[in-house]
């Protein structure tokens, strides 16, 4: 199949704290013939802080990024929160001729009203996973997963026409053989930065989410947001927390990626014992090499 090229905006969370998310996402895209070109010299989208205190900065930060996208390329965004900031910024421009003039003056590029800004999930409408896997239902067989979306499916009223991806992770993971656990807290927000400024609030919601999933029979959580991943790992007060995977890790693992050993040691809650128990942890050589790699942790030091 011919390769499709997308501009790729990783965002600060993936770039700095979710290395394993970026690596597995790039690997997945490579395996399904999608070429990602990182947006040259991209800047922070403003995150939760810019729109909290200064609406002009919150508007201008995504503008610069939008102006950097090569003509005709769709922009793929991996972080759900960056995605909303981009979409809102672009929509505001689309509906306001005066703002368009300002944008064109500030960034020296004509405004492209047709720029496609898409989330990682949108790819699943454009590719067929089964084209890339021989025996899909066996890949993740036996593992009980609790998909966790956090607030990524909630859209503000001006983006209500956006497609809803509810059920996408359930669909993809069950097609790959995983057993889906339903627990009622799939779309509860993790608290994002309250994890820093109000840790007790964040701890309460995170512990509630994970303990409900575990009580419903889940062995692990799966999330598509690097921020949620971090909060689920560091703010769970359970004595034996269950591990959290990035959706991209699960997908690459199912497609047979061999670089898993680079990702999993970066997790704070170690997922390797569970993967071994379910016979999902692949080592390139023999069992001995696998053990050695875990003890020496060469991949972490790099």
């Amino acid at each position: 199949m011919a390769k499709t090229t997308y501009s790729f905006f990783p965002g600060c969370s993936l770039k700095a704290s979710g290395h394993e998310n970026t690596l597995s996402l790039l690997k997945f895209c490579e395996m399904v013939d999608i070429e990602l070109q990182e947006l040259d010299d991209w800047n922070c989208c403003g995150s939760s802080s810019a729109h909290s205190v200064d609406h002009e900065v919150a508007r201008d930060l995504p503008w610069r990024n939008i102006s950097l996208v090569p003509e005709g390329q769709p922009l793929l965004i991996a972080c759900p929160s960056c995605m909303i900031r981009f979409k809102q910024s672009h929509l505001k421009l689309k509906n306001d001729l005066d703002l368009q003039k300002k944008y064109e003056k500030d960034w020296g590029r004509p405004f492209d009203p047709d720029l496609e800004i898409i989330h990682f999930f949108e790819l699943f409408k454009r590719i067929r996973l089964r084209d890339y896997i021989e025996e899909p239902t066996k890949q993740l067989k036996g593992i009980k997963v609790a998909p966790y979306y956090g607030c990524m499916l909630s859209m503000p009223p001006d983006l209500r026409h956006e497609p809803s991806y509810y059920g996408l992770m359930e669909d993809a993971l069950s097609r790959l053989g995983a057993q889906i656990v339903s627990y009622g807290y799939e779309t509860q927000c993790c608290g994002t930065y309250l994890s820093v400024a109000k840790p007790e609030l964040s701890q309460k919601v995170v512990t509630q989410i994970i303990s409900r999933a575990r009580d419903a029979g889940a062995e692990c959580m799966v999330t598509a947001c690097a921020m949620c991943h971090l909060n689920l790992e560091i703010r769970c007060s359970m004595k034996k927390p269950i591990p959290t995977f990035h959706f991209s890790e699960m997908l690459s693992m199912a497609l047979g990626a061999e670089k898993q050993k680079k990702w999993f040691p970066k997790h704070i809650v170690n997922p390797i014992p569970l993967l071994k128990e379910r016979k999902l942890f692949k080592s390139r050589s023999n069992g001995l090499g696998e053990l050695k790699s875990i003890f020496t942790r060469k991949d972490v030091k790099k």
Binding site: H51, C151, P157
Partner: peptide, 28 residues
């Protein structure tokens, strides 16, 4: 200040009021 803008409220609001946007304006 506690509102993180997760948009849960406004995606359920029957009158489609963008409550996080109200919070932004009040903070500023």
């Amino acid at each position: 200040w506690v509102c993180v803008g997760c948009n849960t409220c406004c995606s359920f609001c029957p009158m489609a009021i963008d409550i996080p946007m109200v919070m932004d304006a009040l903070r500023e």
